[in-house]
């Protein structure tokens, strides 16, 4: 029973953790996946509709329509966060509302709202990237390694 992961735990602790594990209500993985697929897909569908709108009615090209589309999605997400709705959607949708750009906007907006009471500089400024910061850091690190692979082997887009 004493595997590597649990070697620091005593026998009673290990026994207890097995009891606790058994009593833990299972997470609804399949339902969560379906919900995430639906809501994530819905957000992307809204994004696509916005993009088509910018291309057809406002003379944007496929390349330039991305920016205003993202801006509108972010705006919607921030408004929903400020109204206290976004976290309720997320409890239902899980990763579906966390992965798209709206989730990133929500993480920044919620942190800014939360820490407004500590002032503009130390509160809002210092905490806005509390959650989003790690996305940026690891996004940049990942991009760096992808770029190295591209440079060395010349794979990927030209």
């Amino acid at each position: 029973m004493a595997d590597n992961k649990n070697k620091k735990l005593t026998m009673t602790q290990q026994e207890y953790q097995q009891v606790a594990k058994r009593k833990e209500p299972p997470r609804k993985v399949l339902v969560n996946c379906l919900r995430a697929f639906m809501i994530g897909g819905l957000i992307c569908l809204i994004g696509q509709a916005l993009m088509e709108m910018f291309i057809h009615w406002f003379d944007f090209t496929e390349k330039t329509a991305g920016n205003p589309t993202v801006a509108i999605l972010i705006l919607i997400s921030v408004i929903l966060t400020c109204l206290g709705v976004y976290d309720k959607i997320s409890q239902w949708a899980g990763a579906g509302s966390a992965v798209p750009v709206t989730g990133f906007a929500n993480s920044m907006c919620s942190a800014a709202l939360e820490h407004r009471s500590e002032g503009m500089v130390l509160g809002v400024g210092g905490n806005m990237f509390k959650l989003a910061g790690s996305v940026i850091v690891f996004g940049t690190v990942a991009a760096f390694f992808v770029a190295i692979i591209h440079f060395l082997f010349g794979v990927g887009v030209k």
Binding site: R27, N32, D87, S90, Q91, G94, A98, N106, S110, E114
Partner: peptide, 17 residues
Amino acid sequence: EKQFRYPTEYGSQKPPT
């Protein structure tokens, strides 16, 4: 929530426990 977890309006799914 603010001290121990995430900002109150942050959209994270809480587990059933």
